[in-house]
């Protein structure tokens, strides 16, 4: 590492922040692009599992809330891709890599949604898990990314309220509705426990060394469990993990080892809905390609 790179590393590790026009090591730029692009991809792919339910929302209020939530996710993708663009990778290239399967997106968006219970669990718990990672990014060494995270976290907190309200209403409803919620929680628990990633020592995690993120994977998971397991229990739901308990003395949650092989399998493009959702992106892009071409011709 050159002296200039070393000085940069020390600067960000000391809490220093970097702007777009500042000098940065090539590796830092590449890491940022990869990290932030995956975040953008996740927002965009996260639209697909929920959009299937926009047409089936059971009341006008739910319809409005769900449409607004999904719209927010698209808006986040737009903001995040703009940050990537400023780092040197245009949005069109990000979208192309996404549909070509060359870049990744979060594990939870590779799974199907089977009932209205899933809609509630996603908005409540998937967004809760996401906001924990995103809040830790408020301290990101790359300042433009940290700045947009403020807006994103603010909006995500409304999604969690919406999701919790969907779940609460169903839990206060009929037995059939409570069953829908429990079944959804059973389906999503595994992916939720995998969401923050396998525990890597911070020293071995380059995203941490460059202070792109400031929290370890396991810290994030502990925070999630701490915040949400008591609420899940309070609603009368059962978490499908017999080992789950809080060790009060150590102030840590114990849980069954998440299925890391499944996580790897899913995020490398083999999830139950990965191919179908990427195909939908490819098809819809091809079907509206004439619109983009017409606008380009008009602008020329």
């Amino acid at each position: 590492m050159s002296a200039q790179e070393q000085a940069f590393l020390e600067y960000v590790q000391g809490g220093g922040q970097v702007e777009t026009s500042d000098w940065m090591p090539a590796e830092y730029r590449a890491r940022l692009i990869k990290f932030i692009e995956m975040h953008g991809n996740s927002e965009l792919m996260g639209v697909l599992p929920e959009r299937e339910w926009i047409l089936r929302a059971p009341t006008l209020q739910r319809k409005l809330a769900l449409t607004a939530k999904v719209q927010d996710e698209v808006g986040h993708a737009q903001l995040i891709y703009r940050v990537v663009e400023d780092l040197g990778k245009p949005r069109a290239a990000c979208l192309q890599d996404l549909i070509d399967g060359k870049s990744k997106f979060h594990n939870v968006f590779h799974y199907p949604t089977k009932s209205w219970g899933d809609v509630g669990v996603i908005a409540w718990l998937v967004d809760a898990a996401a906001i924990i990672s995103q809040k830790a990014l408020l301290k990101c060494s790359y300042a433009p990314y940290a700045r947009i995270m403020k807006k994103i976290c603010w909006e995500e907190s409304f999604h969690i309220l919406h999701g919790r309200d969907v779940i609460l209403t169903m839990m206060n409803g009929t037995d059939e509705q409570r069953t829908l919620v429990q079944e959804a929680l059973d389906r999503w628990w595994g992916p939720l426990m995998q969401f923050h990633g396998n525990p890597i020592a911070q020293g071995d995690d380059p995203s941490f060394s460059w202070r792109i993120k400031s929290q370890s994977n396991d810290e994030a998971r502990q925070q999630f469990l701490d915040g949400y397991v008591p609420q899940i229990w309070e609603l009368g739901l059962t978490v499908p993990d017999p080992k789950l308990r809080k060790d009060e003395e150590a102030d840590r949650w114990e849980y069954s080892e998440p299925d890391w092989a499944e996580l790897k399998h899913v995020v490398t493009g083999n999830g139950p809905r990965t191919k179908g959702r990427l195909q939908l992106r490819r098809t819809s892009r091809a079907e509206t390609d004439w619109v983009r071409r017409a606008l380009l011709a008009e602008a020329a």
């Binding site: 639209v47 959009r51 983009r292």
Partner: peptide
């Protein structure tokens, strides 16, 4: 129905 699949974000 266009949410998520329109020609532009």
């Amino acid at each position: 129905e266009w949410t998520g699949i329109a020609p532009f974000l």
